[in-house]
Design a protein around this nucleic acid. Structure first.
Lengths: 248, 248
DNA sequence: CGACGCTTTGAAGGCCCTCAAATCAGGTGG
DNA sequence: CCACCTGATTTGAGGGCCTTCAAAGCGTCG
């Protein structure tokens, strides 16, 4: 263990990404709800989207703004936050390429109920309401897929509720670390590095605890050699032990 | 205040409900996602559904069973519960006529992730996967509606998460009482009666607290003349005061 | 190198859970 | 119709987890 730890994060930069039509079609085909669409369909869909880049920490939209677009992550990561009245932020989700976010009046929300922010440099596809409806009517398969995706998200949200009401903070943090490792992890010699800047406050916000408690728990995990962590980064050395913490 | 309180609940009985084709069409047209469907569409949809009655507390399906049907509440109330490994139940939702529940493999779940139970005597419409897909492909409007409904549910779940992490039990209970009054309430001389058997355990399960805490808080509300309550029933005397509790 | 901001650690206190026991409403059977 | 029984509700006491408030340690970036 080096006495002076420096960040091991090595995120790909936005410069390495080019939004050519070929890349866009390629990325589109990876999006879960476009997955089974054919070549022609993808080209049609592509013609209905536009792409845009965001710098790390740049705001994509703010809670309460008029809902105007559905967006799809093509590259990088996006952070969804809910601002509460008493000034706290709740981290709702971290999204990776292929996931969608945002809403539209036709989906029942006139305004965004959360803020979206570029967690790293990222590239997003943007679909407006008219195009979105066009796509759904032309390709019913996609509508069914979308319903399934929302059902999964609801399931996950309910799982979170269950955990919040029945598990202590230690288990909730173990749970989110495993989930993030699954989603953003990268195998290294020393374990699975979570390729995301992840502060104690981020962790606290997403597990419903305080920064201090999150810090204490992370320190405890590090003492037990379960994880290796520094400022804004985490690497999991012993996934098995972490799973045992989760079980209790 | 009578020294001996008896239940003021007066739920309509299942006998008062007849599932004739006329009634079914009528009820179908009230279901949010069939709302804008025309007469012909409703008849087509009706031919793809079957109806069934359940007695109060009768099991509709159990968590982990194979997902086979989407169901729609036509009459009465349905309770959705999640059983946790450590033997606790979480009350996920109480459904009223017009709401749907259940899932299907095509929606991404092979098995039910919760149990459904008749909260009162009730009548349900049942749709199997084949019919469901048929409906979605024939009427894309309905698919879009469904996506919107799921988005709303997700929003509500996230709101619950927010509350669980940032509000004390007292505010969470105030919140659910107001929500239930909105959904199932009936105006009486003494206030809004929540027309549902609602035990302290039900309340505790849905707010993520213990039966005892729920009881203490309800007693406190009663002392403050905010509510009037007995065994398994609640009536709200002063909605305004309750809203103030919610604000903090 | 220095300052700022993230992280760690300590201490005090509050909220809520658990365990236990008493009270009470409603249903049952005589 | 009444006494009894069962299960829901209430209330109390003790203790643990986690929050808040403070202050000291360290990376990072200019």
């Amino acid at each position: 263990m080096p006495s002076r730890r420096t960040t091991p994060l090595n995120p790909p930069t936005i410069e390495s990404h080019e939004c050519t039509t070929g890349v866009r079609l390629d990325k589109l085909s990876l999006v879960p709800f476009f997955q089974d669409a054919g070549e022609t369909a993808l080209q049609r869909i592509n013609s209905l989207c536009s792409a845009r880049h965001f710098k790390s920490d740049e705001s994509i939209y703010q809670q309460e703004e008029l809902a105007a677009y559905i967006r799809i992550v093509v590259f990088g990561a996006v952070r969804l936050l809910h601002h509460t009245e008493d000034g706290k932020d709740i981290l709702i989700d971290l999204l990776q390429p292929g996931e969608y976010f945002g809403t539209l009046p036709v989906l029942g929300d006139d305004r965004y109920t959360e803020s979206a922010c570029a967690h790293t440099d990222c590239c997003l596809l943007t679909v407006d309401e008219k195009s979105f409806i066009t796509i759904l009517y032309e390709y019913p398969d996609i509508a069914v897929k979308l319903i399934g995706i929302n059902a999964k998200r609801l399931k996950k949200a309910r799982e979170t509720i269950r955990q919040l009401t029945s598990s202590p903070a230690e288990q909730r943090i173990a749970s989110i670390l495993l989930a993030l490792a699954e989603k953003f992890g990268e195998q290294k010699k020393n374990g699975t590095l979570i390729q995301l800047p992840l502060s104690r406050k981020n962790l606290a916000d997403s597990t419903g605890t305080s920064t201090e408690t999150a810090s204490r728990i992370m320190s405890k995990f590090q003492d037990k050699k379960i994880i290796n962590t520094g400022r804004k980064w985490v690497s999991i050395s012993d996934k098995e032990l972490l799973r045992q913490v989760l079980e209790g």
